[in-house]
Computed example of a mutant assay.
Amino acid sequence: MFDTSRLGAWADLPFFTDDLPAIADKLDGTAFLPPTALTFKALERTQPDAVKVVILGQDPYHTAGKADGLAFSIPDDFGGKLDSLGNIFKELHSDLDLDRSKTSLDDWADQGVLLLNTALTVPLGQAKAHAKIGWSKLVTQVLQNLGAKPRAFILWGGPAKAYALQITGPHLIHTSAHPSPLSCHRGFFGSRPFSTVNQWLIDSGNTPINWADPL
């Protein structure tokens, strides 16, 4: 079901031999988002050594055509409501006075931002329905794998914040409410994740992220 040939160094995680087959069995014959070809896009696009920042969300968008395999990212030609991503852009403007028109976040991933969800699949129209089918083992292994050198972790929402205990070492851990319309006013707006992370990267001798449209 799942093509893992493009995982690169991530393929060494035990999850892909020990746990993925059971998840594939559970999903066999069911409809879910994003398409199987995009399920592991976040890992494929941002390899372990390239990760500077991790943004951890909840689960993919459960609207057809909206989830593209990167947490919070939406295809540029989607044309529907942005919901969480729209609120992320509002906070970006408030935080750094930057505007962004591209809804695809491929350029963030290419700069070393791992855009991962706590569940990598979701049934159409059923948010959080795949939260307990085994994806948590992958997320745990990814976070533990990234612990060897300092990185910035942005954890948005309760499911993401629950993984803070898996992050050990001299990292930046920035947490807030989820940017969804249901929770954005409970601490997401005003949390200033983008300036906080960029200042931490600069202080650590790294290049900051260009959060605006790619140059």
Rank of each mutant, 00 (worst) to 15 (best):
T36D: 13
P159S: 03
L43T: 05
S195H: 14
L215Y: 05
H178D: 03
D77P: 01
L70I: 08
R151Q: 11
G157R: 05
P193W: 14
A42P: 05
W10E: 07
L82V: 01
T103K: 04
D3P: 03
D95C: 04
I202A: 09
K90N: 12
G158I: 10
A212V: 09
I74N: 01
T46D: 01
W200Y: 10
L165S: 14
L201C: 07
V139Q: 00
D68E: 11
I173A: 08
P48A: 01
N87F: 13
A71V: 10
S101P: 00
P123S: 02
L143S: 08
F32I: 13
A164I: 09
L146T: 11
G190I: 05
I173K: 14
T196E: 11
T46Q: 02
L70N: 02
T36W: 04
I74H: 04
L172S: 15
P48K: 03
Q47G: 00
S183Q: 11
F153T: 09
K41Q: 06
L215D: 13
A127F: 12
D28H: 15
Q58I: 08
L165K: 12
G80T: 14
P159H: 07
S5Q: 14
L105T: 10
D110W: 07
A177N: 07
P60Q: 07
W211K: 05
T63N: 06
T175N: 06
Q199E: 15
G112T: 06
G112M: 03
T17K: 12
L115M: 03
D12G: 12
L105P: 10
L85I: 13
F2N: 00
P193E: 10
